[in-house]
Every structure is written in structure tokens, then in C-alpha cells.
Design a protein around this nucleic acid. Sequence first.
DNA 1: CGGACGGCCTGGGAGC
DNA 2: TGCTCCCAGGCCGTCC
Length: 272
Amino acid sequence: MPELPEVETQVRDLQILVGHKILTVTTDTPKAFRPTFTIFQKCIEGKKILAIERRAKFLVFTLTKNWKMIVHFRMTGHFLLAKNSAPLEKCIRHFFQISGGTVLQFSDIRKFATLELVAPNTKSVSLEKLGVEPLDREFTFLKFREIIKKKKGKLKAFLLDQKNVVGIGNIYADEICFASSIHPAAEIQNLSEVDLKNVFREIKKQLKKGIRNRGTTIGEYVDACGQSGRNQLSLMAYKRHGQECQVCGTLLQKMKIVQRTTSFCPRCQIKI
DNA sequence: CGGACGGCCTGGGAGC
DNA sequence: TGCTCCCAGGCCGTCC
């Protein structure tokens, strides 16, 4: 599941496309495009890529005359850089022919991913409601405390909600809770100042570690060159229910929080 | 307003 | 071996 580190890794790999033109776009899954594939194709072909950036779990391509292409990978989407249009994987849905001979392929097993075209001087609805970027300098502990103090509910639900802090999904949420030694179902209101400091520190730490490891590969995520990430090799909690805690040896348990499978250590993460 | 839940999808694994 | 069923999950829309 591409979360902040996986999207960030892809964005960094795709920088070689900046300055190049999108010549053609083809698809066998037109449903993925907004507003429609026909309009998307008509407006995007011939435009130059001026910048590729990440905002939350979105990739934002800035094109000629400030047109934008906003991509969300959802569960299984990812880009692949290729030399020609021979599919590098089974589930290639879209092809972008780029000037200079590169083909940008888009793979997406479950067809949940979306590619949205945004006209100049138009706001993208999807980017409007997003919360703060956890790796920005302006995301300080004071800022974090200000955000979380306004909220009620379970810690994991807070971490997953993109209106609070962006970029955290099921994998990193479990890792952040574990590394903070806080139960994922702990009520936010019951967290102490020390707890908040730990959560704040681990949000930054776990996401940075994910980026350093070029992402977490569970199932299908790969970088733009088709290589797996390495972060799955050092996970402490995510999907480890039934296995021993690597700190205390207790068997990790699982539960559902906001419909998400959640793994945690009942001894290290004492419920508050 | 907010929490719960269904829908979107497909491949892989479990169970029979 | 082969069939069916269930599950994974980000995000949105709907309902209570």
C-alpha cells in the first residue's frame, strides 16, 4: 500500500522526466481518469513536465501553462520507467510516451488508482482538505499538539485521518504506535505529554526510515525501476499478529480499528 | 457532525 | 486438483 515513503520514493525516481514532453497517453482503463479519459488525453498530450512533487499520498505533475496531473496510487498503483511499451508487469493499465524515448508505464492490479487533470487556476478538490505534511519543518511538536488536542477518538484513527497529518496509512500507523509503546486503540484524550512527544517523534522517524529503505514492499509495491523496497524487513508490528514481539517475545495480537486490521503487542503497548 | 459501513477491484490464500 | 469464498485496504458517499 503506497504511503508517504513509497510515494516519495517514486517521486524521486521520476525526476528524470522533468523537462520532457508527454507525447501520447493510452489506456485500457479509462475509468481511472478525471474528468474523462478523452478530455485528459486531449489536454495532456504535447505538454511538458515542469515539476513532479509529492503532496500527502498524491503525486502532483506540473505541466506547461500550469496544467496539473494529480495521481493517487490508492492500493496497488505505481509507475514504472521503461525503454519501450513492452509491459514490464502484468497489470499495466496506462502508457505515457515521453520525449527522449522513455515510456512511463502505470501498473495497478486493483484499478483503484486515479489520474486527475486540473486546469490552470483551478483548485483540486482532492488536495483541499489535506492536513499537515509530517516531514515539513513547520510540523513542530507544538503544531502537532495543537492538532491532536482538538481531537477525540483512538490514536490509530487519528493517524490514518488525512485531515490531521498526511501520508500515514495502515503500515506506518501500526509501526508508529508500536515504536511509541502506545496501544493503537488508546484514547487520544488519555495520552500524556510524554506520550504525545513519543508519537510526534515516531511519526517523523518511521516515515524517514521508510524513505531511507525505499519503501515497504508487501505484495506489489516497487519503485519506478521495478525494485522492491526494504522496509518490510524491519517491521515490528504491521501484519505480525500471531508472531513473537521482537522486544519482549509476547505474541502480537490483532484487532480492527476503523475497519483496518491492526497488529500490536499487548505487553509493550499497554492500553490506556 | 461523526462514526459505521458499503463500494470500488483483483489476486492470493484458506477451506472444502 | 479445482472450486468458492473471503480478505487486503485508501478514500468517498451514504446512512443513522
